[in-house]
Simulated assay, not measured.
Amino acid sequence: MKTNNVKIFLLPAFLLLILIACHKDKTTPDVTVNDSDPFSTFFPGEVKPAPSATCFNGAYYRKIVSSTDKWLGINGRVVLPTIIFDPARTNPAKPGQYLDNPSVYLGGNMGAQETDIGLTWEVIKDEKGNVSPDRKAFRPFLRRTSQKSGQTAAYLNAPASSPYYWYPGEEVMMSIQIVADKKIKFIVEGAGKRYETDFDCDGYSLNGSGEFKRVNAIDQVSNEGKPVQNTKTRVENAVWKETNLYRMYQDKVVSVPMHSKRLTDMRCPDPRYFKIVATAEDQKKGAETISINGSGY
Rank of each mutant, 00 (worst) to 15 (best):
Ser132Cys: 02
Leu99Gly: 09
Met173Arg: 11
Gln97Tyr: 00
Lys125His: 05
Tyr164Pro: 01
Ile117Thr: 13
Lys182Arg: 13
Ser103Thr: 10
Met174Trp: 12
Val172Leu: 10
Phe141Cys: 09
Lys94Gly: 03
Asp100Phe: 10
Gln113Asn: 07
Asn109Ala: 14
Pro168Phe: 04
Lys136Phe: 01
Ser146Ala: 15
Thr197Lys: 09
Ala160Trp: 01
Ala160Val: 00
Met110Trp: 00
Gly108Trp: 00
Val104Glu: 09
Gln177Lys: 14
Gly96Glu: 12
Phe186Met: 03
Lys125Ile: 01
Tyr167Gln: 01
Ser161Cys: 02
Tyr155Pro: 05
Arg89Val: 07
Asn101Gly: 06
Tyr155Gly: 06
Thr115Asp: 06
Glu189Asp: 14
Tyr195Asp: 02
Arg89Leu: 02
Lys148Ser: 15
Lys148Phe: 04
Lys128Gly: 13
Ile187His: 12
Ala93His: 02
Gly192Met: 11
Arg143Asn: 08
Lys128Cys: 06
Leu119Gln: 00
Ile178Leu: 10
Pro133Gly: 06
Pro102His: 08
Phe186Thr: 00
Val188Thr: 09
Ile178Val: 15
Trp166Met: 12
Met110Lys: 09
Phe186Gly: 00
Val172Ile: 15
Tyr98Ile: 08
Asp116Thr: 13
Phe141His: 05
Lys148Ala: 15
Trp121Lys: 02
Thr120Leu: 07
Lys128Ile: 08
Pro102Asn: 09
Gly111Arg: 01
Ile176Asn: 06
Gly118Tyr: 08
Ser146Met: 07
Arg89Met: 14
Asn91Glu: 14
Ala160His: 07
Ser103Asp: 13
Asp126Glu: 11
Leu106Thr: 10
Glu196Arg: 04
Trp121His: 05
Gln113Glu: 01
Pro133His: 04
Val123Ala: 06
Gly107Phe: 01
Pro163His: 04
Met174Leu: 13
Thr120Tyr: 07
Glu170Ala: 04
Leu142Gly: 02
Asp202Gln: 05
Trp166Ile: 12
Ile117His: 00
Trp166Ala: 01
Tyr195Trp: 14
Lys193Tyr: 02
Ala154Asn: 11
Tyr155Phe: 14
Arg135Tyr: 02
Ser149Ile: 07
Ala191Gly: 05
Gln113Leu: 09
Met110Asp: 05
Ala191Tyr: 13
Pro133Leu: 12
Thr145Ser: 14
Ser175Tyr: 06
Gly169His: 02
Gln151Thr: 06
Phe186Tyr: 15
Ser161Glu: 13
Val188Lys: 01
Ile124His: 02
Ser132Asn: 05
Thr90Asn: 06
Ser161Arg: 06
Gln147Lys: 04
Ile117Gly: 01
Phe199Cys: 14
Ile184Asp: 03
Pro163Trp: 03
Phe138Asn: 00
Gln97Asp: 13
Pro95Ile: 07
Thr145Lys: 03
Pro102Met: 11
Lys128Thr: 13
Ile124Phe: 00
Gly108Val: 03
Asn109Gln: 14
Leu156Ile: 05
Met173Glu: 13
